[in-house]
């Protein structure tokens, strides 16, 4: 186990964590402010990835694809909020789960009708395809480095919006006490739609950037949705700070576990068994982490309403 391997794995973990943060931030805001469990959040991520792939192959520019996907997905998200999800705010969590699960099925099928069942190809842009040498002797893929950069930039922007702008103030007011915010004249309906658009745009960014690394296919939203939920539960629902820390924790634990556990187990079990069991145990790790956090802090690390 060399130091470079460990550094590379930590960077991979941070990169996955930041991408999870993009999803978790929208999810935690929607959850915290509207008290709404939105399983269809993963579908917006999938739509973002597909839109990026389509526009990229049509125009030849990855960055144009990302831009189009952000705008397109935000519009779709807002349309979804205004047409269906708005009816669900006053309903209990179970109804929300059922309805948004229905939306997942519908969106999956529509995507399958438009793009087919086969995964769609989305490549990293030419400029960022090679590795870069960060320090002499340590090379790291440029695209992954780009992901880390974008992730940090978006996180900073989000913190700025939430903590320093008027809209952000409404958002925080809504998260801590919805009725009171409404009584103080916050236009809650508009705010909800805007937050939904923002959440959808963040989904699109994550989908576009993870598309070249993972694969763009139907069902990609569900697996990552569960991870995003784990993140916001660890972090405490409604808290952006919690989402960031939870995302980094989950990203690093998952990536490091996947890479390092088989190496550690190899001496004990032999190579084949170690790869197999190590991989599965690594998947167990994040859920173990969540169970432990909830055992000690039943409301997550940074509960928004304390």
């Amino acid at each position: 186990m060399t130091p470079t391997l460990i550094v590379a794995q930590i960077l991979n973990g941070v990169q996955l964590g930041l991408m999870l943060f993009l999803l978790a931030a929208g999810l935690t805001l929607i959850f915290g402010i509207m008290d709404m469990i939105n399983l269809a959040h993963g579908s917006l991520y999938m739509i973002g990835a597909y839109l990026t792939a389509t526009v990229t192959s049509a125009t030849g520019s990855f960055f144009l694809g990302v831009g189009a996907a952000i705008i397109g997905t935000a519009l779709i998200g807002m349309a979804l909020e205004m047409s269906v999800l708005r009816q669900l705010y006053k309903r209990d969590h179970l109804s929300q789960v059922l309805a948004t699960f229905g939306i997942i099925l519908i969106v999956n099928e529509i995507v399958r009708m438009i793009w087919g069942a086969q995964p769609v190809l989305l490549n990293a842009p030419e400029v960022l395809s090679g590795p870069v040498e960060i320090v002499p002797g340590f090379r790291y893929p440029a695209f992954r480095l780009f992901l880390i950069g974008v992730g940090i930039a978006v996180a900073l922007l989000l913190f700025f919006i939430v903590n320093r702008t008027r809209v952000g103030m409404w958002v925080r007011a809504g998260a801590s006490n919805r009725e009171m915010a409404q009584a103080m004249g916050v236009r809650i309906k508009l705010l909800f739609t805007l937050i939904f658009g923002l959440g959808a745009a963040l989904c699109a960014v994550a989908g576009a950037l993870l598309g070249p690394i993972l694969s763009v296919q139907v069902g990609m939203g569900e697996s990552i949705l569960i991870l995003a939920f784990v993140v916001i539960v660890i972090g405490g629902i409604g808290s952006i700070k919690g989402a960031l820390i939870g995302a980094l924790l989950v990203g690093i634990v998952d990536t490091a576990g996947r890479a390092l556990l088989p190496l550690i187990l190899r001496d004990l079990l032999g190579r084949d068994a170690a790869t197999n069991i190590g991989g599965a145990l690594a998947s167990v790790l994040i859920y173990l982490l969540m169970a432990l956090v909830l055992f000690w802090k039943p409301e997550g690390l940074f509960p928004a309403r304390s």
């Binding site: 309903r91 109804s95 059922l98 309805a99 699960f101 229905g102 939306i103 099925l105 519908i106």
Partner: peptide, 8 residues
């Protein structure tokens, strides 16, 4: 999916 949505 549509059936679930309508029921809810």
């Amino acid at each position: 999916g549509a059936a679930l949505l309508i029921i809810v």
